[in-house]
């Protein structure tokens, strides 16, 4: 990377890193509040109301509580792996922000392999879940980890193929090129099947209901992070909510025209679209019951992958013939 053509501006990198850290923290605090409010209103409850306006700073109070909590390390854990897992799950999440274009100019580094960077580092999350589940030396944690691996491996394939059909249309891995290609029409109208497939796979990849088997509360306590407490637990939570932000941001960039929109500045449009997608994913959680494990795997291998491949082939044909 460090060639003369694109020399790395150290100052820019540090500023970007600080911005990303702030975004990650604020986004997680906001999303937890949003999750509580959305779930509450869907069940005709008010949700948190006591701390701040409509419970707006409830999550800040919770975060302070988590910070002050004791870090419990169970006796029989595999110590180095147990301690490394929360860090390993958090680092790739940060890397993904390197290439996300928040608006026309608000992007840390506009890399020509942007999509690949996000997708390849997202794959490391699975490794971290596996480390956490295995090192905890707890049957619920191991079950959660095994489920998570099977699920992520199965859903990563249709996710990649789906995105590939958009990349085929644009002819570039660069995220700004993909946004620029949608100046006339959003790809959600050109590739509706791909959009639906992407949303399904993204819900599964972020381990959200109805695909939340890795941490199914009613069966596995908390799944792979059962044995974690305090700030280590908070890191898993932060990573999870940041992953939600990243998949929603990818959906926005690939299908909803990124930062484009009338009147408002690009950043505002981008965030509106991202949080609309996140709202959709939260809506799923309170609408669909959790699937059974065999249904989950069957859905991916027998329906989503063939559909995604068919979509890719049709896209290729249309591009060549029309």
């Amino acid at each position: 990377m460090a060639t003369a053509a694109h020399s790395v501006s150290v100052f820019g990198m540090i500023a970007g890193l600080i911005g990303v850290m702030a975004l990650v923290a604020v986004n997680a605090l906001f999303l937890i509040w949003m999750e509580r409010k959305v779930s509450a209103h869907m069940q005709l409850r008010p949700g948190p109301m006591e701390v701040g306006w409509h419970g707006a700073i409830q999550t800040i109070a919770d975060a302070l509580k988590l910070l002050g909590k004791e870090l419990i390390t169970p006796r029989d854990v595999d110590k180095p792996v147990y301690l490394a897992a929360p860090i390993v799950i958090f680092l790739p999440v940060l890397v993904s922000f390197l290439v996300i274009p928040f608006s026309q100019n608000l992007i840390i580094r506009d890399m020509h392999v942007g999509v690949l960077l996000i997708l390849s580092f997202a794959a490391l999350t699975v490794l971290a879940i596996l480390m956490a589940g295995w090192a905890s030396n707890n049957k619920y944690a191991v079950f959660g980890a095994i489920r998570s691996v099977a699920q992520n491996v199965a859903y990563e394939i249709p996710l990649l193929i789906t995105l590939m059909s958009v990349i085929l249309m644009v002819g570039s891995f660069r995220l700004t090129d993909i946004v620029a290609a949608q100046n006339r029409i959003w790809f959600v109208f050109v590739q509706p099947v791909a959009f639906i497939l992407y949303i399904i796979c993204a819900t599964a990849e972020t381990n959200r209901a109805p695909f939340d088997l890795p941490e199914a509360e009613s069966e596995l306590v908390a799944g792979f992070h059962t044995e974690y407490s305090g700030m280590r637990f908070a890191l898993f939570f932060l990573a999870e909510y940041t992953n939600m932000f990243i998949v929603a941001a990818l959906a926005t960039i690939f299908f909803l025209g990124g930062w484009r929109g009338p009147f408002l500045p690009g950043l505002v449009w981008f965030l509106i679209k991202v949080y609309a997608i996140i709202f959709l994913i939260m809506w799923f959680r309170w609408t669909f019951p959790r699937v059974r494990f065999d249904q989950l795997i069957t859905l991916s291998w027998k329906i989503l992958i063939p559909l995604a491949l068919a979509n890719l082939i049709v896209t290729a044909f249309v591009l060549k013939l029309v």
Binding site: M1, M111, H112, V113, L116, L117, L119, S120, F121, A122, A123, L124, V126, L127, L130, W134, I146, V149, A150, N152, V153, E156
Partner: peptide
């Protein structure tokens, strides 16, 4: 960078995970 990211995507993301499994 392309080969590097493919390396992570395929070898770390898929093959290592498959071995763990």
């Amino acid at each position: 960078p392309f080969v590097a990211l493919m390396q992570i995507l395929i070898y770390v993301g898929a093959i290592t995970i498959a071995i763990c499994f």
